[in-house]
């Protein structure tokens, strides 16, 4: 059900995009107003969400340790999986963010009959990694539309991406990988009953939306051959706050644009915020040094404890009988003298 609803929601967006392509006033709104509104929502929403997290204190020092601690000098410790310094934490986070270290742990790589077997769980790691990296690559490639002159690194990325020069225009590998990885992730959610049980509307929606963006983009590039010059003009105009909707922009492009805007506006309110959340995760971004450096809890509130003196008062007779030393030896003596501590 969740999957169906989210598919319908994305299809509705696609249709809305095409519909906008038909009438001039709608085109105007979509090309001038919507992108700004969406990116304003993205910017404000993103900052607001991150601020929400950042302003909540981290009262306790709770890293999850995944290797040997640093204790005695002759024991080798796990510098990355159980970092004891800031630099260790940086490498742990880098491994987490660039390589999905923890997800990798899930893998069971096994040698069976001389063949390396990667289980289904390995494909999760592999496809996630492929999906995220190609997504990044594609976003960077888009910079060529917004910047004039095009930065050298963007050109380099493009050349690399289309390295094998298959087809005209050259096929980007990132496109193929992105779509296949996402298809796998989606397929996985449908296939595994446990995941189907867990998946919410938003889980499918994010995937369908990204997939729709990718598909419309691919259609434009390889099939309908969008007029790249007018798109660039439009993008530069947007970037320079001089928006204009040229007649040369196709309905497909407007559809792509609407979907991207929808993603931008939706992102801050969704689980896609994991991209910034991961940096703040207290089980990963703290060094395991809570015994060598005191961690401060800003709201460390006083609590009711059972103080020693009260305790001794209660058990005085029994302690005396058992010969356990007392703080205040005898009631009749001057208690003030005995209480030297």
């Amino acid at each position: 059900m969740n999957a169906l609803y989210s598919l319908l929601a994305v299809l509705a967006l696609v249709l809305a995009g095409f519909a906008c392509g038909q009438g001039a006033p709608a085109r105007m709104v979509l090309a001038t107003f919507v992108p700004y509104a969406a990116f304003a929502a993205l910017l404000i929403g993103f900052c607001w969400r991150v601020a929400r997290w950042a302003f909540v204190p981290v009262p306790f020092h709770i890293p999850v340790t995944c290797g040997q601690q640093k204790s005695l000098v002759w024991i080798r410790f796990a510098k990355i999986d159980n970092p004891s310094t800031r630099w260790g934490v940086v490498s742990r986070m880098a491994a987490e963010i660039l390589l999905f270290r923890s997800l990798f742990r899930n893998n069971r790589a096994r040698l069976s009959g001389g063949r390396l077997i990667l289980g289904e769980s390995a494909s999760l790691w592999l496809c996630s990694l492929a999906f995220h990296w190609t997504l990044l690559l594609i976003m960077l490639r888009h910079l060529r539309l917004f910047l004039e002159p095009v930065p050298a690194f963007v050109n380099a990325l493009e050349r690399l991406d289309g390295y094998f020069q298959i087809g005209v225009p050259p096929l980007y590998f990132s496109d193929v990988i992105l779509v296949s990885a996402m298809t796998f992730l989606l397929f996985r959610r449908f296939r595994d009953p446990a995941l189907r049980y867990l998946s919410l509307f938003s889980d499918y929606f994010a995937l369908f939306l990204l997939l729709a963006i990718a598909v419309t983009g691919i259609l434009m590039r390889y099939f309908t051959r969008v007029d790249i010059l007018s798109v660039k003009q439009f993008a530069l105009g947007l970037a320079a706050f001089r928006p204009g909707a040229s007649q040369a922009l196709s309905a497909l492009f407007l559809c792509h644009l609407l979907l991207v805007c929808a993603l931008a506006a939706y992102l801050p309110f969704s689980k896609l915020m994991h991209m910034s959340g991961v940096f703040l995760s207290p089980t990963r971004n703290l060094a395991n040094n809570s015994r060598s450096q005191r961690h401060i809890n800003p709201w460390n509130a006083p609590v009711k404890t059972h103080a020693y003196v009260e305790w001794e008062e209660e058990f005085r007779d029994k302690m005396q009988a058992a010969g356990i030393p007392l703080e205040i030896e005898n009631e009749t003596e001057d208690a003030g003298n005995a209480r030297t501590n």
């Binding site: 969400r49 769980s121 689980k271 994991h274 959340g277 207290p282």
Partner: peptide, 11 residues
């Protein structure tokens, strides 16, 4: 944070 960022990947 843990309320917000789970993607239900199932790992």
């Amino acid at each position: 944070l843990f309320m917000d960022i789970c993607v239900r990947c199932g790992a």
